[in-house]
């Protein structure tokens, strides 16, 4: 296992090198070969450690192996004096505080309940066993919540986001608690 792990690690490093060469030479061929090598290294880890351990480690390793290439590309910047900045003028703006608090309350507890309702209603439609429905729901929910949070903060028409999200949550809630399900 030690030798196999070492070889798989070498494979992961070579893969990172391939991607780097592709980037450095603006070569799509090298880049594609590098990414293919990443997939190959994940397969090697699977052979050494089994599919579950191998996939986990194989996907996480590029975060480390690329740093050799990043170190090669590191370039020093000339030391400059940091500009002396004026003192920040804090002012009490109750409307701004209320608005920002509202945004935070909506994104945190608000969207949590919206996402939970939508997610449960959706996964319970899936034609799979209940444990699979629950697992899908609870693991996809943070991604949905994250996407909704991003969309809300990004949007210049927040009212539309709120209306659509609350509408979807209301439909989900009606189905869950309104007796519509069997």
């Amino acid at each position: 296992m030690i030798l196999g792990s070492f070889l798989a690690l070498v494979g992961s490093t070579v893969a990172a090198g391939g991607i780097y060469l592709g980037w450095r030479n603006s070569s799509a061929v090298y880049a594609w070969l590098g990414w293919l090598a990443v997939a190959g290294s994940v397969y090697c880890w699977h052979l050494v450690l089994g599919v579950e351990y191998g996939l986990t480690i194989g996907l996480c390793l590029p975060a480390l192996t690329v740093w050799a290439a990043i170190a090669v590309e590191a370039s020093p910047q000339r030391q400059t004096r940091e500009r002396v900045k004026p003192a920040h003028q804090w002012r009490v703006a109750p409307r701004q505080i209320a608005r920002q608090t509202g945004h935070i309350l909506y994104v945190l507890p608000g969207q949590m309940f919206i996402c939970a309702l939508i997610m449960i209603a959706v996964v319970y439609q899936l034609p799979v066993s209940e444990p699979k429905q629950m697992a899908t729901g609870v693991l996809v929910m943070p991604v949905l919540w994250g996407l909704l949070a991003y969309w809300y903060v990004l949007s210049s028409r927040k009212w539309l986001h709120i209306v659509l999200s609350l509408g979807a949550a209301a439909v989900a809630g009606l189905w869950l608690f309104g007796g519509a399900h069997g």
């Binding site: 980037w23 290439a69 929910m141 943070p142």
Partner: peptide, 30 residues
């Protein structure tokens, strides 16, 4: 954890030079 998902997505979307800068590292300066 959920907001970390939001940060990941928004961070990737905010990074138009994601490939160009893939191995860039400038150190020092201010």
């Amino acid at each position: 954890g959920a907001l970390l998902c939001a940060l990941i997505v928004s961070g990737l979307m905010a990074h138009p030079r994601i490939i160009k800068d893939a191995f860039k590292f400038r150190y020092g300066g201010d």
